[in-house]
Each structure stands twice: as C-alpha cells, then as structure tokens.
Design a binder for these strands. Sequence first.
DNA 1: AAGAAAAGTTGAACCAATTCTAAAATTGAG
DNA 2: CTCAATTTTAGAATTGGTTCAACTTTTCTT
Lengths: 204, 204
Amino acid sequence: MSGLRERQKADRHRRIIDAATALFREAGYEGAKIEAIAAQAEVSIGTIYNYYQNKGDILGAIVSMEVNEVLNAGRGVVASPPANVGDALDTLIGIYIEHSLNYLSKEMWRQAMAISTQLPDSPFGQAYTALDRELTRQISALIARLQEIGLVRADIDGTAVGELIFNNMNMMFIEFVKRNEARIPELRAAIRRQNRVLVAAIGV
Amino acid sequence: MSGLRERQKADRHRRIIDAATALFREAGYEGAKIEAIAAQAEVSIGTIYNYYQNKGDILGAIVSMEVNEVLNAGRGVVASPPANVGDALDTLIGIYIEHSLNYLSKEMWRQAMAISTQLPDSPFGQAYTALDRELTRQISALIARLQEIGLVRADIDGTAVGELIFNNMNMMFIEFVKRNEARIPELRAAIRRQNRVLVAAIGV
DNA sequence: AAGAAAAGTTGAACCAATTCTAAAATTGAG
DNA sequence: CTCAATTTTAGAATTGGTTCAACTTTTCTT
C-alpha cells in the first residue's frame, strides 16, 4: 500500500537527511541552523520537528546509516577471514576505520558521540548504544570464527576478548576524532600495537 | 602578595563552584540554570562568564578535582601493589570506580564526557583528555612496577597493555554511567572478566 | 591623597533551538 | 465530488546560554 502519502513522507525524510548531511559537512553541526536545513529541504521548521524529535536525532539518522554500512562490510571478513589472527583483526578494524569518514566528518562524529552519552535514552542514544553492541558482537563473532578454523585457542573467552578489542578500538577512535590533525594510518598502527599482546596470547 | 583583589577572586571561584556543585546535584546539569548558579553564588551572570568560558567549564572544574583525588589515591597502589597481577589491577581499577560517584552523579559524568568530546579544544576538553592520559599512564606504571617485582613478563609491552586496560575500563565506565540502573559490583566483575585473558597472558 | 589606569562586574540584549497556534493544504473514503 | 481526518505551514512566543558596552572597584603613580 504505498499510497501517495507514504511516498511523500519518505521523500521528505530523504530531503531532510540530504539537506542536513550537506549542511553539517559544510557548516558543522552547530553551524547548520535548523532554519537552513528546513529551507534547503523545502519543508518548514515544524515539519522537521514532526519527523525528528530534535536536531541530534537528524544527525543520529545519518550516523546509523553509516554504521550499518560498516557492519555490512564487516560480515564478509567474518565469513572468510585472513588466515592469521593479527591480519584478521586488522582487516576488520580497518574496514570500520576506513569507512568512518565517508559520510561523517570528525566534527559530526564528535557531536554524535556526545549526544549519545548526553541523552542515552533518546531515540538516537539508544540506537547508538545498540550499534556499538553489534560491532562488539561482530568482533566476538570473528574470534569465534577463528576458533573454529583453529587459529585461536578454543579455551579463550571469545566474548571477553571481543569486548576488550572493541572497547579499546572505540576509545582510540574517540581520541582520533577529537584531534583534527590525527590521521588514519597512525590510528591503525597504534591499535595494531595494542592488539599485538592479545593476538600473541590467544593464537594457537 | 595576597591583595584584596586576589582574595575576592578566589572567594568568587569557590562560591561559584559550591553553588554549581549543589545545583548540578539537585537539579541536574541542564536543570541548573546559569542564572540560578549566579544567584546562589551571589555574583552576576557576567562574572560567571568571566571566570569560566561556558557552563561546561564549571562542571569541568568539579570533575578535575574528582579525578585528581582518584589519581592521588591510585599512587599508593602503584607504589606497593598486591602480590598478584589480577589483584593489583583489580585494586587500582577498584579505586577509580569506587571513588567515581563521590562528588559526581552519573548525570554529571555523562555531561562531562559529552562536553569533552564535543569541545575537545575548550579548556575543559583539554583538561579531560590530559586526565585520561594520566590515568592511562598510572595503569602503565603499575604494569611496569609488576615487571620490576617479577610478576609480569619483562618482554611485555607495558604501555600497550596499560592503554588496552584503561581504554576498556573507560568504555565500560561510559556505558555504566549511561544506564542509571547499572551497579558498581557488576561493572567491576565485568571488567575483571575482560582483564582475565590479559592477566593470564602477561603473568610470568 | 587625588587622579588615572587596569581589572572586574553587571544585566539587558542577542541568538538559535524548540514549542505552540491557527490557518491552509492534501489525502482517502464513501 | 465532497468531507473529515491528517499533515504541513508560517510565524510568534518561549527559553536559556552567551555576549557586550557601560559602569565600579581596586591598584598604581606621583
């Protein structure tokens, strides 16, 4: 039943997100005034607030798309990982990090992270936490997969290791987006170094 | 040379911090209006902005005091740690976590963390990052101490392990303050479980 | 001790997010 | 085609953090 009303609604959603994405990137989160987003999306301010509870939720919608793409890309690695624990982890983490600045600027990430801790019960706050959990699960799934293949010792607590690796990576990523001059290769190298101890410990 | 001006300045600082601490706890960060803080501190709004760049910096001053106390408490553990890697880590982390809600409510922590990612270049943003770094260093120092004692293998990258442990703990703490119903014992147990893999790997 | 300079204080005005209101437009059902 | 329900709209009102130009107080100089 995709009536006209449904289609228009979807179209307005898309227009708002497109306008917001463009303006967030151009002017930054704070700099992108709701009025400007409304104008560019060709809707009224009221309509925006009808679709999203607040400015943060608009950013939230954008972040969710990004993270979902990343999760999807990660599935491939989990399904058939490189035949070496260190490389397997590095490949998965590489996908997360390399994708990260495709749609979102560092400033957008900072805002998104801030909002998700500030308002953990808002729609976006909950969604963000859920996404983090899925990323953690994906890393744990990779460890499990490596255990099946026999690259990781069977007696290792894969869940705990997955959490450790994700939490460390996430914290490193937070510090990364906080420093505008920080670069991806250095970030990846630092994480590799940190993981090395773990990799040595869990490998067969 | 403690002239009148100096004393008045110190006094106003104290009054603002006292008023803000009380109001943040009573009304929450958002609920504590600058106007109310000014009234309770018996200064004008303008004066508050003369002493702190923005509302977040007031919270920042309170957080910094708290974290500095924690760092101090931690020094004792590093100086003479329990004679067991797992216990040593658990003791240090225990100090961090148990202290954490002395002055600051979970809501205040959430706001502080949010502000520090949102405005990494503000005075508070920089201070917060520096404090995180010191906590990391303290954990690394503990590992180094354990290496001296001979409880941790000498060929372990202590810095990397310290970072890994701090980043994981910090992320767990962030999730902890995001959920009002979360309790400290469960948090500590979860972190112990995560650290177990590492402890096993680095012990002699 | 007077006068000038420096430093600090004040609160009204500003700005942007959000809420609210009443009117106008659109849709789907009968 | 008509009408009732639902949405959208423009804009005014509200709110609370932040800024700024005028005013005070403190300190310095002679």
